[in-house]
Write a protein that binds this DNA or RNA. Structure first.
Length: 237
DNA sequence: GCGACAG
DNA sequence: ATCTTGTCGC
């Protein structure tokens, strides 16, 4: 079965190479008014996702969740295939698509230039930016004090930025996902930094995803239909 | 071959 | 990512 996995993963890598060719590093066209974020939480073989939309003051104005059974283990470089499906389900449940969606993971700072944020952006045809606490690849100089940032490069290409958001905390990695420029990706995240290491929308999405997971597992939430898992339109709440 | 490796 | 108590600091 090891050999089968190897060829299966090879197929997934080919899919990423194809996705990378579709990534657009420009945009968004208009002003970025609404910003959203999506994050996942896991337990056993279940994946819980929460997508939110915030206003200019970082207040949550919309929220959606989704659950799905995981079909792929965590493999560095193949995160989309584990987290992408649930994330997409949650994002699709939002009442309105945000102008830019912040994703918990890498954008083009990926071995094949197709991280979770880029793949989600291409699949959903929306502007996305990847924000991660570590980077899969790339060269950079550690940014000094808070609010400072340095460039992240890989194989001679600019992939994003390393931003020190809070004093005393390690920096975060920002890279465009899809339909967004390097500069805009950085600006959107900078605009969302409040008092924490992660930009507020993403931090909130993380908290809500974890809460959604614990509330669901402890039975404090209405039973979830298996519709999510089957990929059919789900209807929670 | 060796090490590194988003969440 | 997740498992987890106390603890240091603003």
């Amino acid at each position: 079965m090891i050999a089968q996995d190897a060829s299966r993963f090879q197929d997934l890598r080919r899919i990423q190479t194809n996705i990378a060719q579709q990534v657009v590093l420009e945009g968004p066209a208009g002003a970025v008014t609404s910003i959203g974020a999506v994050a996942q939480s896991f337990a056993d073989d279940l994946a819980f996702s929460c997508a939110i939309l915030v206003d200019a003051s970082m207040n949550v104005i919309d929220e959606a969740t989704a659950i799905a059974k995981t079909t792929v283990p965590y493999i560095p470089g193949l995160l989309f295939f584990r987290e992408g499906p649930v994330a997409m389900a949650a994002i699709k449940k939002l009442r309105k698509r945000p102008d830019v969606l912040i994703v918990s993971g890498c954008g083009i700072n990926h071995p094949r230039f197709a991280g979770l944020a880029s793949h989600l952006g291409v699949e959903l045809n929306m502007s996305t930016v990847g924000v991660s606490q570590e980077t899969l690849c790339g060269d950079y100089v550690e940014p000094g004090e808070a609010c400072c940032f340095t460039r992240l490069t890989f194989k001679g290409r600019p992939l994003g930025f390393v931003l020190k958001t809070v004093t005393g905390a390690r920096p975060i990695f920002i890279s465009p996902g899809h339909r967004i420029s390097l500069q805009c990706a950085l600006q959107v995240v900078q605009r969302c930094v409040v008092n924490h290491r992660l930009p507020e929308p993403l931090r909130l999405a993380h908290v809500k995803a974890r809460h959604f997971r614990s509330a669901t597992r402890s039975g404090q939430l209405a039973p979830i239909r298996t519709a999510d898992t089957a990929g059919r339109p789900a209807h929670n709440q």
